[in-house]
Design a protein around this nucleic acid. Structure first.
Lengths: 151, 151
DNA sequence: AATCGACGGTTACACTTGCAACCAATTCGA
DNA sequence: TCGAATTGGTTGCAAGTGTAACCGTCGATT
């Protein structure tokens, strides 16, 4: 007899449901205020917190598909929130970094994020978020270390 | 000076990244094997594990938008994996349940899921998944209890 | 019983997304 | 050293998605 299958305790399902919920909840905080899509916010956040990066770097860092990154970067560029600079050594890549306006926007959204998380932390109790994130790190590491379908 | 903002420890970001990663990884297991989309798999899983439900039930259970459910159900129906039955007492609702073929498919995919999760569990150590899921449950509860802007 | 609002479910439309094909620049290999 | 394979990045297209508007049914109020 096969072991019972309980969807409620199937990790991909649970992770997705929680991620969707929290993501939607937080996106409301910036969507109407900055007219920013989720990929845009992610790219902005990556650039703001890491500094100068290439498009590929952003994709790896935030696990976004490269076309998504490409479009988000394009949108941020049109807003004059980031500028590209050529790399003389390898002219395929373009280094990206935030303009002054972009950094200002980043600070504002980062502020929103800090507030959001600290409210959540208050509701969950201290250390709860760290524990979850430690667990997530383990999951990611396991998945990346043992890719089920190479490359 | 504002507190520093570290994207790496921002929960919505981390949750999304992990969810995307695991979801993609698992979907590879069934997508090409069953030509099934994610909403279809979710609806199938809900019906298979809970039993007879209405479309609305499925949406609540798996946190899917009703149009997504509608389309997934339609697709499953065309495959003859589920059948609808009228409710004489209320002709708006339609009870949905899996056909024999649908149950067979469900068993196969559930099997895949079990295997997937047990492999993961082995890599993570016993209890790790339960701990993460307990944390996720807390997060969901906090978000649903204190909706920042939600009907 | 006629009306109004709510509800289950579907659909039209516009927007977003991923895949694959592509371009240009670089590296590899015989 | 020249061509093939690889890489960073963009784009055309088809498929997926959410919003809003809709249809038919139900329940309550009158």
């Amino acid at each position: 007899m096969p072991a019972p299958f309980d969807l409620e305790s199937f990790l991909p399902y649970r992770l997705n449901r929680a991620a969707e919920l929290i993501s939607l909840s937080f996106s409301k905080e910036y969507k109407q205020r900055f007219q920013m899509t989720r990929p845009e916010w992610r790219a902005l956040a990556a650039l703001g917190s890491v500094g100068r990066m290439t498009a590929t770097d952003i994709g790896v860092h935030s696990n976004m598909h490269k076309t998504k990154v490409s479009r988000a970067v394009h949108a941020l560029e049109e807003r004059r929130w980031l500028k590209r600079s050529e790399n003389a050594a390898d002219r395929r890549v373009e280094h990206l970094e935030l303009t002054a306006q972009g950094q200002k926007a980043y600070r504002e959204v980062a502020d929103l994020a800090r507030t959001y998380q600290s409210t959540l932390e208050k509701a969950l109790g201290s250390g709860a978020i760290e524990r979850i994130e430690a667990g997530l790190a383990d999951v990611e590491q396991a998945l990346l270390a043992r890719p089920r379908k190479r490359a």
